[in-house]
């Protein structure tokens, strides 16, 4: 029970950081998503603590391992635009596939080549 309440507290910390981030972004009308500011708030808190509390670590590892779950409603949402997509189906599919591959290639190659020259330590897979 105690472990459970600590995990619940860790979850509330995540909700609080996210909410604080959203409020700050809304209040200052910043051009970034509130969640990004939320990440920075939590990062600052962890840096101040100098360690990641165990329940927070467990909760975050669980959520990040299952991040896909939270994207399912967005996937289902694509259905709502099926008719709009059908108008330009082939141009859309070809553009999305080709552009995604090109962006992965350009970003990945740029990173790898520059990392070789700047001497950063690579983590070969």
């Amino acid at each position: 029970m105690r472990a459970f309440s600590r995990l619940a507290l860790a979850f509330l910390v995540l909700v609080a950081c996210d909410t604080a981030g959203r409020v700050i972004v809304w209040g200052l009308s910043l051009p970034v998503p509130g969640t990004v500011v939320g990440i920075l708030i939590l990062l600052a808190a962890i840096v101040a603590l100098r360690r990641v509390p165990e329940p927070l670590k467990e909760m975050v590892e669980f959520l990040l391992a299952h991040l896909n779950f939270f994207y399912i409603p967005a996937g289902v949402g694509v259905m709502a635009y099926a008719a709009l997509l059908a108008d330009d189906l082939w141009p859309i599919l070809i553009a999305l596939f080709a552009s995604t591959f090109l962006a992965m290639f350009a970003a990945g190659l740029a990173f790898q080549v520059v990392a070789r020259f700047t001497g950063g330590k690579g983590d070969g897979a």
Partner: peptide
């Protein structure tokens, strides 16, 4: 699909706190 999103919205909202967790691996 809007009926489904009554539940879906809750999950989409949870994406925020889940993503904030990126601070830990960072």
């Amino acid at each position: 699909v809007g009926d489904y999103q009554m539940g879906g919205q809750a999950l989409i909202w949870l994406l925020g706190p889940a993503t904030v967790g990126l601070a830990v691996p960072l």
